[in-house]
Every structure is written in structure tokens, then in C-alpha cells.
Design a protein around this nucleic acid. Structure first.
Lengths: 239, 239
DNA sequence: CACAGGTTTGGAGCGGCGATCCAAAGGTGG
DNA sequence: CCACCTTTGGATCGCCGCTCCAAACCTGTG
């Protein structure tokens, strides 16, 4: 056999890990987690498998790196907000709410992040989140031996919502309906349930259209903060 | 070509959906989520693909059915506990704690359930959980328009812990260490972090060995219940 | 008993996936 | 100019979920 056909010319710009992770993020945002295949990446970057695997360990590494980027941006945004002369007392709650809502919004914008959180536990970016939460709780007056319980409760709640958000986004995408139709189809399915056995589900069903996930998430955060204040906080709750 | 080689004899016992789901559950419990492949299932059941796909839509259907089985057992166990003359006031908290811990134990015993919860949202079994939580919260005196917020907070916290549990179990299995060594390796990794930037992580690291996931989970449940009492409950908190 | 029609089963095969591996291409120092 | 190292492209492998079809079995009708 002759020395094989001419090979495609080498790329001009250097391929870096960051370029690859960014391309992966774009694919994930555009078409969801399943769309991120190594083949799709080679096509988008006009390169081969070897080049990618030279900079990245495997697919999980890629997903984890993309997730870290998103989370790091949220933490950076929250810690950067230096409140000069804000009320020093309500400040910790305010920051915790901002962090929680920032994470919610990030997962809402990138649903694949929510799914990733339950796959790769305790990535570096999660340590930053934990540190941020702990610091604010300490400022709230939570005793040191209860810090990990309280921080864990808050973070696990956030991860739970993130996971459900990701699942909902996947279900919505799979149904190929718009959000309105999708909610209607869910409501219709629930309508067929026995009202005697599922009274609460039926009640929730009627509220489904005006239901706001973000508001409910915020209410949950406030609930947990109120619980922390009630159990461990010395100061007045919520003020 | 001759009429092909003799085909394997047909199975004698009937193949049902339940038999398939149970075999799947055994594979999942023994070797984890990735070990459940259609091939492994055909080998264990000594059958072919066609037979399985005749009873089951696809792999996701199988995982969802197995998850439903586990969750339904937990809900049934909790609702079956009819407290005859127990203190009627503390009863709702007691039941909510029992449900939460039951779900925790189930996920602990079957980590793949935790991962599944963030994949297939609002399966039938989850509606039963929601109904159970809502009913008990209503008995606690939570006003009707706040029920979905409170129930959502509690359930999302539970799903969050479930997801983290599943992730930890996967990480533990992948490391091929026993639990003791695994915790030590995590502690060692955290020990290299900058103590100035991650003081809380360092504090948590020293507590890692005596750390009990189940206790921390229960503390989180109590925290949320206390928050619900503080914000919405008319009665005294916790009594 | 025969045999037609429906249901259940076994397994070959398909397309696509992540990952490996190696040769070619480019860079770099002596 | 050449030996050596890093980076790149892509053929290839093994495994996956799933489809599809014929064989095997079941059932009821004459």
C-alpha cells in the first residue's frame, strides 16, 4: 500500500484546554448533555481525537471542567460584591441569598450543570461554595460545631433543586413542546389521578400555571435560613 | 445456506416485567449503575434482547421501574405505621422524620436510586412521597398556600442528599478503596489547600473521620422543620 | 386432530459511542 | 541539519442500546 492519502493540514491556532472546554460548553448549552460527544467536538474544532485527548483526560474530565467554570463564575460574582456601608447585621443573609439565587440562575441557564453536580462530588469549585456558605453562616452566629450541619443543609437543598431543574429541562427538551404546552401536559396527566388519594397533587396542579420555580426556590432558602436562626442563631430571625 | 444452526431451547418459566425489573435491581445493587447493560441482563436471565424489549420499553424504563419499586416500598412502610394512641401533636414531625430517614436509608442501600431521582422527575412514586409530605405538613398547621413551598423545600433537600450519596458511592466504588481509606484520601487532598482561603474546609476535614452522614441528614431535616414551624407554624416549635 | 393467527422468545446485526494508538507534522536546541 | 520532543489527525477497537426477523410456542376454531 502506498504511504496512505495526504493527511489534512495541521491547524494554525494552538489548541488549549480552555478552547476545548469552551467549545464543549457551547455544545452543552446549545443541545444538552447528550449532544456532547467526542465526535461533535472534533467536528466543531476541526481536529482529531488525539488532539483533544492530549489536553483532556476523558469525557468526564471535560464535563467537570465545564461545570467548574460555571460555578467559579457564580462564586466570584458573589464574593466580589463588597458592600461598603451596607447594614452589617443583615449582610450574611443577603449574601447567602445572593449566592443561592446565583447558583439557581446558573443552573437554569445551563441545566447540564445541575446533572453534573450529582456525578462529580466535591470538585474544587464546590469547595469554594462551601467556604462561602460557611463564612456567612459563621457571621450569622452559628456555633462552630453546627457549621457543617447548617452549611450541608443549605448546599444539599441547592443541589436538590439543581438536579430537579436539570431533570425538568431534559424532560422539556425531550417532549419537544414549548414550556406552556409542557406544563399543560403535566397538569393533564395529574388530572387523571384519584383525587381522594392525591388531594395535594390536585391542589398543586391548579397552581401549576402561575407557579414560579425561582420564587419557590427562594422561599425554600428563606425557610432554611429561618430554621438556622431558630435553632442556632442568637439574633432576631430575619432582621 | 442451510436453515442456520439449531437455536437455543425456549425458556420454560414465563418471563414477566417484574422478573426483569428484579434481575435489573440485583445487578444494580451488586455492581452499580454502569453494570446494568442489556447484555448483562440477557446473560443473567438466559434469554435474548427481543424477550426483554417485549416487556420493557428501553433501559431508562427499566431504571425508572426499579427506582419506583424502591421508593414505593419506603412510602408504604411509613404510611403503614398507624400510631394508635401516640401523641397526636408531635405525630406529623415524627412521620416526616421517619419518611425522610427511610428515603435516606433506601438510597444508602441502593445508591443508583439517588442518581435516578435527578433523571426521571415526577415518577408516580414521587407523587406518593409528595402526597405524604403534604399531608403531614398540613397537619402541622402549614397554611394551604404555603404547602407547596414547604413540601418542595423538604423534598428537594432529600433529593439533594440522595444525589450526593449516590455520587459518593460511585466515587468510593471507583477508587477501589474501603471506606476508611477513601475518607483518608479525601482528607489528605483537602489538607493541601491553602488554610487562609479554605478555613472551613480545613475545619470540616478534621471532623471527617467521626462524621456521620445519616446524623447530618437528620439534623438538616430538623433544621427545615424548625424553619417551617418558625415561619408558618402556629404551634410551639418541635413540641 | 389440523392448522391459521397471534404472542413470546432468541439472537444476528446496525449505527454510534468513548477511548486507544500510532504515524505524520511541527517545533526546538545543539 | 539533524535528533528529539510535543502536538495533531484519524483509523481502529470493543462495547453499548436498540431494531428486526424468524423460530417456537400457544390458542381457538373447524
Amino acid at each position: 500500500m502506498p504511504p496512505r492519502t495526504r493527511r489534512a493540514p495541521r491547524r494554525t491556532e494552538a489548541l488549549t484546554r480552555d478552547v476545548i472546554v469552551q467549545a464543549a460548553t457551547e455544545i452543552l448549552d446549545a443541545d444538552g448533555e447528550d449532544a456532547l460527544t467526542l465526535r461533535a467536538l472534533t467536528l466543531r474544532l476541526a481536529t482529531g481525537y488525539g488532539a483533544i485527548y492530549h489536553h483532556v483526560a476523558d469525557r468526564d474530565d471535560l464535563l467537570a471542567a465545564a461545570t467548574d467554570d460555571v460555578l467559579a463564575a457564580v462564586v466570584a460574582a458573589v464574593t466580589a460584591v463588597s458592600a461598603p456601608e451596607a447594614t452589617p447585621d443583615a449582610e450574611p443573609q443577603h449574601r447567602l441569598r445572593a449566592l443561592a439565587l446565583g447558583l439557581f440562575d446558573a443552573v437554569d441557564a445551563h441545566p447540564w450543570v445541575g446533572a453534573q453536580l450529582t456525578r462529580e462530588p466535591w470538585r474544587p469549585a464546590l469547595l469554594d461554595v462551601y467556604e462561602c456558605v460557611s463564612t456567612q453562616l459563621q457571621a450569622l452566629g452559628v456555633p462552630e460545631d453546627k457549621l457543617s450541619d447548617c452549611a450541608g443543609a443549605l448546599m444539599n437543598y441547592i443541589w436538590g433543586v439543581a438536579g430537579q431543574n436539570a431533570a425538568n429541562a431534559r424532560a422539556l427538551a425531550a417532549s419537544k413542546l414549548d414550556r406552556e404546552q409542557f406544563l399543560a401536559s403535566v397538569a393533564q396527566r395529574w388530572a387523571h389521578l384519584d383525587p381522594a388519594r392525591y388531594p395535594s397533587v390536585h391542589r398543586a396542579r391548579t397552581q401549576l400555571r402561575e407557579h414560579d420555580d425561582r420564587e419557590q426556590f427562594a422561599a425554600g432558602v428563606d425557610l432554611i435560613l429561618a430554621g438556622i436562626q431558630a435553632v442556632h442563631g442568637g439574633g432576631a430571625p430575619g432582621r
